[in-house]
């Protein structure tokens, strides 16, 4: 069971790692690259807490092998904000109280961004159908749906920052937290 070299770009930064073939992408991100914003909530590709973007589209990283991501571009929640500026979908989740415990939130936000990329002006029903692969136990989805609706008013809600612009998002959290103090 030899290890396999994988080269991939995560949030605009290139990584070359040797992995055992069974390593799940989510564990590569979390345990090897230290990007713990992506979560694991189930074993069955059901909950969507592990949702990231793979080559620009939302996938469940618990059901993608790290080796399958060879040569791909991955964006995680840490790479969503453009430097200090929150992504419009992050902003809307905050504004509309679209999260409580926060565990499903990174996956939910990554899914919502992809949803808006394909459908910039969704109806409530389209939003609800579009989030069917992401479970939340806290919010009853009400404010999540509201947040996605509100984010859709922003012209770039379906866009993620160009790779490289935001590096891996390191440091963004702290700065954003401080920005929050003035809000």
């Amino acid at each position: 069971m030899s290890e396999v070299p994988v080269r991939l770009s995560v949030n605009g930064r290139t990584h070359e790692v040797d992995v055992e073939p069974r390593l799940l992408l989510v564990h590569l991100l979390r345990d090897r690259l230290g990007l713990t914003g992506t979560h694991v909530g189930c074993d069955t590709t059901s909950c969507g807490a592990c949702t990231v973007h793979l080559d620009g589209e939302s996938v469940k990283s618990c059901t993608v092998l790290a080796v399958q991501a060879d040569g791909c571009e991955v964006t995680t929640i840490e790479g969503l904000a453009d430097g200090d500026a929150l992504h419009p979908v992050q902003e809307a989740f905050w504004e509309d109280h679209g999260l409580q415990c926060g565990f499903c939130t990174p996956g939910m936000i990554m899914r919502a961004v992809d949803l808006l990329a394909h459908d910039p002006d969704p109806t409530e029903e389209e939003i609800r159908r579009g989030l069917e692969g992401n479970l939340c136990r806290c919010t009853g989805y009400h404010n999540i749906v509201r947040a996605v609706k509100d984010a859709a008013r922003h012209p770039h809600a379906g866009r993620i920052p160009a790779p490289g612009v935001s590096a891996d998002g390191a440091g963004a959290g702290r700065e954003l937290a401080q920005e929050g103090l003035g809000a």
Binding site: W94, G173, L176
Partner: peptide, 21 residues
């Protein structure tokens, strides 16, 4: 008031137990 907790949660910078190694 919008939540003080949220900035760390929406940016993936919060710390759950499995984030500690």
């Amino acid at each position: 008031l919008k939540r003080k907790e949220d900035p760390r949660l929406i940016t993936g910078r919060a710390t759950y137990v499995d984030d500690l190694n």
